[in-house]
Design a protein around this nucleic acid. Structure first.
Length: 565
RNA sequence: UGGGGUGUAGCCAAGAGGCCCAAGGCACCGGAUUUUGAUUCCGGCAUUCCCAGGUUCGAAUCCUGGCACCCCAGCCA
């Protein structure tokens, strides 16, 4: 696709380039460090693309490292799901798959080193007391009575913490930095806590687990990460990140650089909120196509290319931002337009009978697979006396600009004939049941020999050969662009009740039912659709709408003064 | 009343003293082509860069002072 186009530059690439040029680094190493406590979403995709692309462009490497230091929240299921998502997005970590838990022994030694140098101590205070001692944003903290414990005692206590002699919460290892620092992270932060829990990777080998700041900085150093890219909320942690590395015999000195996280309108990106939506069954699981999770977007039908294109268009800066859905949708359309074969499908069918077409006759018509790429061939589609067309393509009293079917008007059936509406039949309630038309037998293929111009072209499916299908139409998850704008109201109230519409008796062009799950098509004049990767079968075809086509008619329609019903 | 950040069009985003009466994308508005009211194609869309002063021949870019918004008081990451 446009992947050959150079990636948009950003301030991080500039830093990396400068470090290469100055000789500070000969090789660039980055990392994507997810915690396996949930599924990845499109915000993570930003980090994944940034880390992998930056490294790759510079001929370096990018590690996939699970930040698995909190066994109570982390699960094997998430580890596997994350690996699958990163791979699906198109990135490979090669040999470089790591877990922070791989370094637990080494990390323990670093902690001992800190204690030996009088830079860490074992705390007796309770969590509650530690919080009180920490002070507030505007007032300094107070030093713990344990702060000046002897090195020997600290070493002994820490060893016993490791040995499992104490219960959860009885002790903690703290860095000895500065209780009056204006940066709360530097007020003797906790480095290790006691947690008698089973870890997905290390089982019950450990009863103490290192905290994020200590683990992350030193894991980066151990792996020789040159540029440790993270989101803005860690900016305050950078002094601690540096402190850990500087006060221990760390093998390298990575540099942390922060960028702003991705926000998207009409959805939420926090793992906590997504988990809540899933747990409360507001959606049908982590891969619900309405969710911004990678598995959700995948199931909806988005391609990895379109997500990468989108991420590239978003850019990387330190400014808080919320991207409009249209940017994502357009990125999808751009890829899908080029790659997707065209097919005919009628979602809201109404019957058309071609009165002057011979009873019992049917024929096969040529339909091109992609009008802009004739080399992709064509297929044969059946046509006979009765066909389905879209209900919205007929209007009993139509405005002048309505180029579709209406009494007395002529329209083109795509790839087939010109037809003229002769009469309509209605049921007792006045609802249109059948439309009767005549066709021009000389217009086979769609053009009349006399060269008369017919402005409108509509899609259709032969009634006799139509394949019945379920189609799911998705819309934005929330009714408001910024669901979290006013936390006073619960965000659950703002869910869009019409985010999912299931249509059951759609008529598809034959053949579509045979497509493999996760096959994408453009249903002409409607949008891009993808066969559901779980539910689609030849017996019961199920298609998800990825994104509708751009629709300038709806704009005209809205702008035109309203007719009677 | 603490610390750390950020402010360029509706949404993103280039820009690092003169080439800026400010790239590019999305959105939007025209118009051309079209057997998808799609695609494609052309054209339009900030005399102005949060505000106010200042420095300079010259400032979005430098200085000073404001203002607005975001993050931080987990033994989460």
């Amino acid at each position: 696709m446009n992947e050959t186009r150079p990636k948009q530059s950003n301030f991080i690439r500039d830093i990396v380039d400068a470090d290469l040029e100055s000789g500070k680094h000969l090789n660039i190493i980055t990392r994507f460090p997810p915690e396996p406590n949930g599924y990845l979403h499109i915000g993570h995709a930003k980090s994944i693309c940034l880390n992998f692309d930056t490294a790759e462009e510079k001929g370096g490497e990018c590690h996939l490292r699970f930040d698995d230091t909190n066994p109570e929240k982390e699960e094997e299921e998430f580890i596997e799901a994350i690996k699958a998502d990163v791979a699906w997005l198109g990135y490979s970590w090669g040999e470089h798959l790591y877990h922070a838990s791989n370094y637990f022994d080494q990390l323990y030694q670093f902690a001992v080193e800190l204690i030996q140098n009088g830079k860490a101590y074992v705390e007796d205070l309770t969590a509650e007391e530690i919080r009180t001692y920490r002070g507030t944003l505007t007032t300094p903290g107070k030093e713990s009575p344990c702060r000046d414990r002897s090195i020997e005692d600290n070493l002994d206590l820490f060893e016993r913490m490791r040995a499992g002699e104490f219960g959860n919460g009885e002790h903690v290892l703290r860095a000895r930095i500065d209780m009056s620092s204006p940066n709360l992270n530097m007020r003797d932060p906790v480095l290790y806590r006691i947690r008698h829990a089973n870890h997905p990777m290390t089982g019950d080998r450990w009863s103490i687990y290192p905290m994020y700041d200590f683990t992350h900085s030193l894991s980066d150093a151990i792996e020789g990460i040159t540029h440790s890219l993270c989101t803005l909320e860690f900016e305050d942690h950078r002094p601690l990140y540096d402190w850990c590395i500087e006060n221990v015999s760390a093998p390298s000195r990575p540099r942390q650089i922060e960028f702003s996280r991705l926000n998207l309108e009409y959805t939420v990106m926090s793992k906590r909120l997504l988990t809540q939506l899933v747990d409360q069954q507001q959606v049908e699981g982590w891969d619900d196509p309405r969710l911004p999770t990678l598995v959700g977007l995948r199931r909806r039908g988005f391609t990895p290319e379109s997500i990468r294109l989108f991420i590239n268009r978003v850019g990387v800066t330190k400014k808080d931002h919320t991207i409009q859905m249209s940017l994502l949708e357009n990125s999808a359309r751009e890829v899908l337009d080029q790659t997707t074969p065209r097919r005919l499908a009628v979602l809201d069918p109404i019957k058309v009978i071609i009165d002057n077409y011979p009873d019992g006759q049917s024929e096969l018509l040529d339909a091109i697979n992609h009008p802009n790429f004739p080399e992709r061939g064509s297929r044969k589609i059946p046509f006979s006396k009765e066909i389905w067309i879209e209900r919205a393509d007929f209007m009993e009293e139509a405005p002048k600009k309505f180029f579709r079917l209406s009494p007395g008007r002529e329209v083109r059936l795509r790839f087939a004939y010109l037809i003229t509406c002769k009469e309509i039949t209605k049921d007792s309630e006045g609802k249109i049941v059948t439309i009767h038309c005549d066709h021009d037998p000389a217009s086979r293929g769609g053009n009349a020999p006399d060269g008369r111009k017919v402005k409108g072209t509509i899609h259709w499916v032969c009634a006799q050969h139509a394949v019945e299908a379920t189609v799911r139409l998705y819309d934005r998850l929330f009714q408001v662009a910024h669901p979290l704008a006013d936390p006073a109201e619960g965000f659950g109230q703002r869910l869009n009740p019409d985010s999912l519409k299931i249509i059951r008796n759609c008529k598809l062009e034959p053949g579509l039912e045979e497509s493999a799950p996760e096959s994408r098509f453009q249903f002409e004049r409607l949008g891009y659709f993808c066969s559901d990767r779980h539910d689609h079968t030849p017996e019961h075809p199920v298609f998800n709408r990825i994104v509708p086509l751009r629709d300038s008619w709806s704009k005209i329609e809205k702008a035109t003064p309203v007719k009677k019903k």
